[in-house]
């Protein structure tokens, strides 16, 4: 595991890239990690925002929950490691 991780942000930082999904506040949606079962709001996941795209990871097991890529042609969002997303 990483000892220091200055690149890590809170899932809250992904609000702009996920805003097009249309829910009033995407970062308040609840995600379940398919790997370890941890369930929490998007705002509290670990986020890595890069110029290639953003990656949200489970704070408990590091699994990739969400990937968002903004390209000239549009935005792509994948949820490879989430078993579900819910609005509470």
């Amino acid at each position: 595991m990483a000892t220091h991780d200055p690149a890590a942000l809170d899932g809250n930082a992904l609000a702009g890239q996920l805003a097009f999904l249309g829910s009033p506040d995407v970062t308040s949606l609840v995600l379940r990690c398919a790997t370890c079962g941890r369930t929490d709001v998007v705002a509290r996941v670990r986020a890595y925002v890069t110029a290639m795209g953003s990656v949200a990871r489970c704070v408990a097991c590091d699994a990739v929950l969400v990937v968002a890529v903004e390209q000239p042609g549009g935005t792509l969002v994948a949820m490879p490691g989430a078993s579900w997303v819910a609005r509470s």
Binding site: M1, A2, T3, H4, D5, A7, A8, Y48, T50, A51, M52, G53, V55, R57, D62, V64
Partner: peptide
């Protein structure tokens, strides 16, 4: 520049 899509593994 560093591009990190995850924690730096040890």
């Amino acid at each position: 520049p560093v591009l990190s899509a995850g924690p730096t593994p040890d």
